[in-house]
């Protein structure tokens, strides 16, 4: 029994890991295709049909490029930077419930790697750790532009973590649990999705998610108009590739997290009214969940090619003077509404 349990978790981990990497790979192509679409041009279309082999070519090219470590760089930390970035990006998906239970030969298989007591906080912790990759890489490069990028990344991520955490507290007041598996299970159907009770919280959360992923309009750490390439100015070859990859994985994981927390995860409308068996509900649920994730990834890219970059003081003002007070107001509002509901409508 124990052996089967370990084997099933191992398979799940490998599958999740592979899917994450493949999605991150094809996000690069999707980004360029969408950019092309929005700017009325084709985007990459030479490698394979519709440019489908482009990510493979890019990856291969990254591996064969010359690897340069600057003479003044701190060698260990210079290598450790991208390593931390990619590891933290990959382990953050461990607590996300990908679907309901599958029943295979009478055995119930959970499609979640670990349903820990503190699921939401685990993701937060790992995200908080991710900034070390950027900071160490930027500092170890021994380059003023890199250092500026690293410092911007650190202060930006700390500022927006506060807003994100506060917006999440209001959500947790509604769900009354930190377990991601249970949060999704509560949102069955369509009307129970958390977005209907926490619209403001979601708006704050998605804004902070953009900042945490260093995406436009908050990509100040790699702002090329001011800082050459920001924290990865000195990086070449696959080490640069790992930084880029971790950015896309972060985008995928935060999309998954938003779909889980606010948009019902694997739940879809009328899921129990169609007379489907448990396994079919699970399979369709997984597909629906990925559809939601792709929707968010598209939204990330749509914003990138629509909005210009913020100025750094505007970024800080938005974080501290608008998002945090709004998030606190949201907490108070949620508390008051919960209290009224419990007292008068029980």
């Amino acid at each position: 029994m124990e052996g089967a349990f370990i084997l099933e978790k191992l398979i799940l981990v490998v599958v999740v890991f592979t899917v994450t990497l493949v999605i991150a790979m094809y996000s690069t192509l999707a980004e360029r295709k969408i950019a092309g679409f929005m700017q009325d041009r084709y985007g990459p279309d030479r490698a394979g049909i519709f440019g489908i082999l482009q990510p493979l070519c890019d990856g291969g090219k990254f591996f064969f490029k010359e690897e340069i470590i600057p003479a003044g760089a701190h060698k260990t930390l210079f290598i450790l930077g991208p390593v931390i970035a990619i590891i933290t990006a990959c382990i953050s998906s461990a607590v996300i419930p990908w679907g309901q239970d599958l029943v295979i030969n009478g055995r119930t298989v959970s499609l979640q790697v670990a349903d820990v007591n503190i699921g939401v906080l685990y993701v937060f912790g790992v995200i908080a750790l991710g900034v070390y990759g950027i900071m160490l890489g930027g500092w170890a490069s021994n380059n003023k532009f890199s250092l500026m990028g690293a410092i911007r990344a650190a202060s930006q991520s700390i500022s927006y973590e506060i807003g994100m955490g506060l917006s999440l507290i209001a959500l947790l007041m509604v769900t009354e649990t930190l377990q991601l598996g249970e949060i999704v299970a509560q949102q069955s159907g369509f009307v129970n999705w958390n977005i209907w009770v926490q619209p403001l919280g979601f708006l704050i959360f998605i804004t902070c998610a953009f900042a945490e992923c260093n995406r436009v309009p908050f990509d100040l750490p790699e702002c090329e108009t001011e800082l050459v390439g920001g924290y990865h100015t000195e990086y070449s070859s696959m080490k640069l590739g790992l930084y880029m990859f971790s950015e896309y994985i972060n985008m995928f994981v935060s999309s998954a997290l938003m779909a889980t927390l606010y948009f019902g995860g694997y739940n879809f409308p009328f899921m129990y009214d169609l007379g489907l068996s448990q396994n079919w509900i699970t399979i369709i649920g997984v597909l629906v969940f990925f559809l939601k994730i792709f929707g968010f990834i598209f939204f990330f890219m749509w914003i990138r090619w629509t909005l210009p970059r913020f100025r750094y003081d505007q970024l800080m003002n938005l974080g501290w003077k608008i998002l945090i007070p709004l998030a606190i107001a949201n907490i108070v509002l949620t508390g008051v509404i919960t209290l009224i509901k419990d007292t008068y409508f029980q």
């Binding site: 995200i127 908080a128 900071m135 500092w139 650190a154 202060s155 991520s157 700390i158």
Partner: peptide, 11 residues
Amino acid sequence: YMGAIMVLFLF
């Protein structure tokens, strides 16, 4: 500690 305070130290 790891995610916020030490990042500020490093900063």
